[in-house]
């Protein structure tokens, strides 16, 4: 009886502990084997059969059906350039020039990994839709209550934590080889109410 109680205790404590450990490693941290380029993080092995069980589990939860990095590089930012968590109340700017790729887009996602509902159905800006300065550069406004001006692309970001994904379709060979050293747009906080 005494031993039976101990075995039961081992199971009652061990099973939730194992599940909790799985939850912690899959819901937090990067996508595994990830590299950072400023606030942008990307996995080197997402979507490929080389991925380890941890990467595979994270990708299944947060980036199901991702392509390998020669086809598409997915950079995700959950923090601004200063390291503070992205918050939909605040206004950010994604500033730069076209990264080396055939086509790119920046999209905002809520904490639940889905697009953020907003009246204008504004979810992203892309190489072909972004409003540009005369010199070809762009400054995409992200978050905040309204668009800063009609001359700037704006992506609303809800009222809570959010993340941005920068997709590069057919990245330049230099990018696919060294995703940590790619020239990517900067992500700066402009203001917080």
């Amino acid at each position: 009886m005494h031993v039976a109680v101990k075995i039961l205790g081992t199971i009652v404590v061990g099973v939730p502990l194992g599940l909790a450990a799985t939850w912690v490693v899959t819901s937090r941290g990067g996508m595994g084997d990830s590299v950072a380029d400023g606030p942008w993080k990307t996995s080197l092995v997402a979507g490929s059969p080389q991925s380890d069980p941890y990467t595979r589990a994270r990708v299944a939860l947060h980036g199901l059906f991702a392509l390998n990095r020669n086809e598409t590089l997915y950079y995700t930012a959950t923090e601004d350039s200063s390291g503070a968590k992205l918050d939909g109340h605040c206004r950010y700017e994604v500033v730069g020039r076209d990264p080396s790729a055939r086509w790119w887009s920046v999209t905002a996602y809520g904490d639940d990994d889905y697009l953020i509902s907003n009246p204008g159905n504004l979810y992203s800006a892309s190489q072909t839709s972004v409003l540009r300065q005369k010199d070809g550069s762009f400054a995409i406004a992200v978050g905040g209550a309204q668009a800063p001006s009609a001359k700037t692309s704006w992506i609303p970001a809800g009222t809570g934590a959010f993340s941005l994904t920068l997709r590069l379709y057919n990245p330049g060979p230099d990018m696919a080889l060294d995703p940590a050293d790619a020239v990517l747009p900067a992500l700066k906080k402009v203001s917080c109410p």
């Binding site: 081992t10 199971i11 404590v13 061990g14 099973v15 502990l17 194992g18 599940l19 799985t22």
Partner: peptide, 9 residues
């Protein structure tokens, strides 16, 4: 207990 947790994980 740790072994059970590891296997479950």
């Amino acid at each position: 207990t740790i072994l059970v947790a590891l296997v479950v994980h």
